[in-house]
């Protein structure tokens, strides 16, 4: 399997990468970990004329905790997030989700930013980013802009990153109060991708009731979305199995479900409720 011909340029800095992308316009594609793009190139489902390899831009990789947020560079790999001791305390959901992505070789190459920018309908990070209220930093020729996760995923394989722009880093607001989070995934046994995956973050008030919840699903439809009806049904309740099950039972309204050879639309609709319940209960179970 040999891709169509293309030229390859390795960018040394964000500015250089953006310059190259502007220069080549629609003919250029960013190459990060390559674990979504290269399979598409090999099948000739994508045939860009130029690949701009950003993997050498050191500034874009790494995890920085500072005050009220953690900043994750776009090139931080799934494996970096899986292994990070720093994140295990504040965002245990990151290693929990990372370890469920593909396999170790995929995690060694694939990047957090690449996964978000690619917006695969079954990618794991989009659901996690929605549940954590991530803020995406995007740089283009006109400077930097910041987009909330809620506005970032547009459609199948379409995020708000425009041609000529780079996703550079992602901020995760530091949770305050009594917070628990979890990602629960039903993996496709062969591909490893999510048939359905649900990420949940819950905050409890002084009396132990849920004061806020963010719950998001991937794999169900064309893009990851928040399950707002579940979130609303949880607020003010104590997170007992019964209450969580009732809230999770509302999950999935408005999703245009995908059906494929592995899981029908009905099956996915069912899984969304089951995994919403599991994710919220698991989040409630690890509140600290």
């Amino acid at each position: 399997m040999i891709p169509s011909e293309f030229d390859y340029v390795k960018a040394g800095s964000v500015q250089e990468a953006i310059g190259l992308l502007q220069q080549h316009g629609d003919d250029a594609k960013v190459l990060a970990g390559g674990h979504s793009l290269i399979p598409l190139l090999k099948l000739r489902l994508a045939s860009p004329a130029v690949l701009v390899d950003i993997s050498g831009i050191g500034d874009l990789r790494g995890i920085k905790s500072g005050g009220d947020k953690v900043t994750i560079g776009a090139l931080t790999t799934h494996n970096d997030l899986e292994q990070s001791a720093e994140l295990k305390g504040s965002f245990p959901i990151l290693s929990e989700a990372a370890t469920l992505i593909g396999d170790p070789m995929v995690r060694n190459r694939g990047t957090f930013g690449g996964s978000l920018a690619h917006a695969d309908p079954a990618g794991d990070w989009p659901a996690v980013a929605l549940a954590l209220g991530a803020q995406m930093h995007i740089t283009g020729s006109g400077g930097e802009r910041t987009v909330a996760a809620d506005d970032f995923f547009i459609d199948i394989l379409t995020s708000d990153v425009q041609p000529g722009e780079l996703l550079t880093s992602i901020d995760l607001p530091m949770p305050s109060g009594k917070v628990g989070m979890s990602y629960q995934k039903f993996s496709h046994p062969a591909s490893g991708y999510a048939v359905v995956g649900v990420a949940a973050m819950v905050t409890l008030d002084g009396s132990g009731n849920c004061s806020s919840a963010r719950v998001a699903v991937t794999g169900a439809g064309a893009k990851a979305v928040r399950l707002t009806s579940v979130e609303e049904a949880l607020v003010g309740k104590s997170l007992t199995e019964e209450n969580v099950a009732a809230a999770a039972g509302t999950a999935g309204e408005g999703i245009d479900y995908l059906g494929d050879i592995y899981a029908s639309e009905e099956y996915r609709a069912h899984l969304v409720k089951v995994f919403a319940k599991r994710a919220v209960l698991a989040a409630a179970g690890n509140v600290k």
């Binding site: 390559g34 674990h35 290269i38 399979p39 494996n79 170790p104 070789m105 995929v106 060694n108 190459r109």
Partner: peptide, 8 residues
């Protein structure tokens, strides 16, 4: 790090 050399 282990990587798949068909995907690079």
């Amino acid at each position: 790090s282990a990587v798949k050399s068909c995907t690079l």
